[in-house]
């Protein structure tokens, strides 16, 4: 199966969903080509709103549409969809709990060569702190299609984060997903690797190598950062006691932090976090950046070795 960026999946599925659901609207901020919503705009011109390069207005317009019973998807890049419109989303959407979805391409380091201004490494953590906001990053094409569908059925604000760059397809088209329920990809008793979004592919590679070495790994795709599947994290703690989190995000306030909170409150378990170590990256190829900033499978293996010795 040909690799595909998850933004492509969003562009495909939003048209499929909108055919069934008249309430779905898309609000673009001049980057519909890049966010893959041009097919939606062509198919449903009356339900497509382009506000131009004005993200704060997009947030308010979405809030207004939601009060009228529509399900608006704001489509932009993750940097702008989280930070440029943050207070508008917090006060005009999350506080009144309006049914607005924020669907963002260019998550994490996936816009690689665009550089730091376009690499969102804080977005999921920022939205995790806002009461009532769900935060989701699907791991591949089909996961994206199913989780966007779930977001339509979810009553309340949702932040969805996609990749600019292509990812391998791990899931089949029939795979089922539920917001707030992590997926166990592989069972194993010595170590748990919990990943979110594109990091699943690094985690899969590390798991393959560890399995070859005879190490049993439980691999979890925690596609929903919030509401976190704490029961599954607690199960991972009970099962192996040794956990590695992997995320294409700053290590602060993302998946690693969320899992650390569960571990700390349970009083059991050891954790290693893979992610950007509180620094901005730089322009470069996505895969090369993951390697340089120690967010790739090699980095996971290094942490695994540390934990397995303990």
């Amino acid at each position: 199966m040909k690799p595909a960026a998850t933004r492509e999946a969003f562009g495909d599925v939003i048209v499929e969903l909108a055919e069934q659901n008249q309430q779905i609207y898309v609000i673009d901020c001049d980057i519909s080509k890049s966010c893959k919503t041009t097919k939606f705009a062509d198919t449903f011109p009356c339900r497509h709103i382009n506000v131009g390069i004005a993200e704060q207005n997009a947030a308010g317009v979405a809030a207004g549409l939601a009060t009228m019973g529509m399900i608006p998807f704001i489509s932009t890049y993750a940097v702008f969809g989280s930070m440029r419109m943050l207070e508008q989303i917090r006060t005009s959407v999350c506080y009144p709990r309006l049914n607005v979805k924020i669907a963002c391409s260019h998550g994490g380091l996936t816009p690689g060569n665009d550089g730091v201004t376009h690499q969102a490494i804080e977005d999921m953590g920022i939205y995790r702190t806002i009461p009532g906001m769900a935060v989701i990053m699907p791991a591949d094409y089909h996961a994206t299609k199913r989780l966007v569908e779930q977001a339509v059925h979810y009553d309340g604000p949702v932040y969805l984060r996609f990749t600019r760059d292509p990812l391998p397809k791990h899931y089949g088209a029939d795979e089922m997903f539920e917001i707030g329920k992590g997926k166990i990809i592989k069972e194993g008793g010595e170590l748990c690797i919990i990943s979110i979004g594109d990091s699943l592919h690094q985690a899969l590679e590390a798991t393959r190598i560890l399995n070859e070495r005879g190490v049993g790994v439980r691999l979890v795709d925690m596609h929903t950062l919030k509401p976190l599947d704490t029961a599954l994290v607690e199960e991972c703690i009970a099962k192996t006691g040794k956990i590695i989190t992997v995320e294409d995000h700053n290590i602060y306030n993302g998946l690693g932090s969320a899992v650390a909170e569960v571990i700390a409150e349970s009083g059991k378990g050891i954790l290693r976090r893979i992610g950007l170590r509180d620094q901005f990256a730089e322009s470069g190829d996505y895969e090369a950046l993951l390697q340089k900033y120690q967010m790739d499978s090699a980095a996971i293996l290094q942490r695994a070795d540390e934990l397995l010795k303990m």
Binding site: C46, R47, I49, Q56, N57, A58, A59, G60, V61, A62, A63, G64, L65, A66, T67, M68, G69, M70, P72, Q88, T91, S92
Partner: peptide, 17 residues
């Protein structure tokens, strides 16, 4: 500063409906 944007969304929605 946020209200007029919401008003745009409501007015757009009213026309659409």
């Amino acid at each position: 500063g946020q209200g007029l944007s919401v008003g745009v969304g409501m007015a757009f929605g009213a026309k659409a409906l």
